[in-house]
Design a protein around this nucleic acid. Structure first.
Lengths: 266, 266
DNA sequence: TAAATAGTGTCTGTGAGACACTATTGG
DNA sequence: CCAATAGTGTCTCACAGACACTATTTA
């Protein structure tokens, strides 16, 4: 069979050889990663941020991330960056959304593929810093007492139409002098809302605890992410099929009381 | 307050002026859109495809789409392309996933931000063609009898690990001579699965019917997307709060029988 | 008028939500 | 030993799933 020829009478081989995409303007593409964890005492969530040492947003905090290389997927780029910042491999990592608004980076045309990473407590860090994060209905607060930084945003709701449907949307406006770099607050909120939406009906929580854990601690984690308190009985009925006791008892981190130790049953 | 200066002693203004991103390799970024609809008799789903007139994949069918311009968002690019192909505006359009595998486009480094569009039946087309699409557990079939084209893929399941969790994944392998261009079969399956996952608990269906509809037709649509039959009573209990009768009766498209006409209640 | 389809009434089981209770632990 | 927390038993209610029935329409 002779090779197919296009309207310029070129075969595919010939076409690829002469092809150049230089006529198109092209964006830079980065990944930004929301690395989420829970603190030692299971009393709050934590986010990993990096202080910028370059313009723009010099000295502002930003999500860890970086440019995607030509020979890797966005997932691989995110995993690579995550390993650089935390030393962690094989953590939960999921693509959330791609942010493309022109002007979101003052330097040049930059798109960002956002990822969510869930990691257990206590990991070593290189350059990044843990911030406490509290997300409420109308406000989001990021704090690090060591660095003396407090970043706070108001959240207001709007609606927009998509086809025949109306959706709730939100806008974050800074209320502190300090702000996050770029549109990273959007990435955080978007990722967190997606996490919350699926947290109850998936096993995502087990990526944020160690290999073993107690039920009071696990419940505390669920309550932090979901933003509401749960009934002990119902919570236990829900998680029981997902876990198995290790046979020993350990202190829960929430209340420092002895309780049964469990592990995730795969 | 004096402007902040970075490690090269530049202010932000100075930095932006001298900044160049030419050192980085950059990908081209496109949007590809899965335009989904239901046929006239509500007996099957339809997908919009465009026959390629250029290398690579010359003469293959592909999802409508195109390069994103510097001054628009990915959403705007998808909406623009959709209008070009279908003349439709204000249709449901949602970002699904960004595909970044190196080599997915043989020409050069191209990422694709995939969108799902839901449109009502009967719309005018320019270059694109409707294909019947049937998605089953282990196979996916795309057909257009006018063009005499039948494209079929086997679907096999695999599992992969993400953190501590295991997920089901799938791989599509072509079983016909004709294939879709690029990795567009992946985009179709991924988008369709996401649609199916949320279809029952959202009002997405109303983007695929006209302004008015009958309950037998609406149920047929749900059954097509969900891939299972529903009990009439339960289905009606579920949709009743979302709709209101117009007061007249019209023929249902499924069975050509008179039945109550409804509209979506927003 | 008969077959097919539109539309309704109601039973059941499951699971989330809620509350009250007993058992264990730490100070 | 007592206050606090771990852990259990069980009731209620909403809702999906299931089936049987009546009403209307078409041929």
């Amino acid at each position: 069979m002779p090779a197919k020829r296009d309207s310029n009478n070129l075969t595919e081989k010939e076409f690829l050889k002469q092809y150049t995409d230089a006529i198109y303007d092209k964006p830079s593409v980065t990944t930004d990663i929301l690395v989420l964890s829970v603190n030692e005492s299971f009393s709050g969530l934590k986010v990993l941020l990096v202080k910028r040492e370059e313009h723009p947003y010099l000295d502002c905090y930003a999500l860890p991330g970086g440019f995607i290389m030509k020979d890797e997927t966005a997932y691989q780029a995110a995993a690579r960056k995550l390993k650089e910042e935390t030393g962690l491999e094989d953590v939960y990592l999921d693509q959330i959304y791609t942010f493309t608004k022109p002007g979101r980076d003052p330097r040049t045309w930059v798109m960002s593929i956002a990822y969510l990473a869930l990691v257990p407590v206590k990991i070593a860090l290189s350059k990044a810093v843990w911030f406490d994060i509290r997300i409420e209905d109308s406000c989001i607060k990021l704090e690090n007492s060591d660095e003396g930084v407090s970043i706070c945003y108001d959240i207001t709701n709007t609606t927009f139409k998509n086809g025949k449907l109306s959706y709730e949307n939100w806008v974050a406006t800074p209320v502190t002098k300090d702000e996050l770099a770029f549109d990273h607050i959007e990435i955080i909120v978007e990722s967190f809302l997606k996490l919350r939406a699926s947290f109850e009906h998936t096993d995502l929580a087990f990526n944020m605890v160690g290999d073993t854990f107690t039920l009071p601690d696990l419940q505390a984690l669920y309550e932090l992410v979901l933003g509401k308190s749960l009934y002990k009985t119902n919570f236990r009925a829900m998680v029981t099929p997902k876990i198995e006791p290790t046979g020993s008892k350990i202190k829960s981190r929430t209340k420092n009381k002895l309780s049964t130790e469990y592990r995730y049953r795969e």
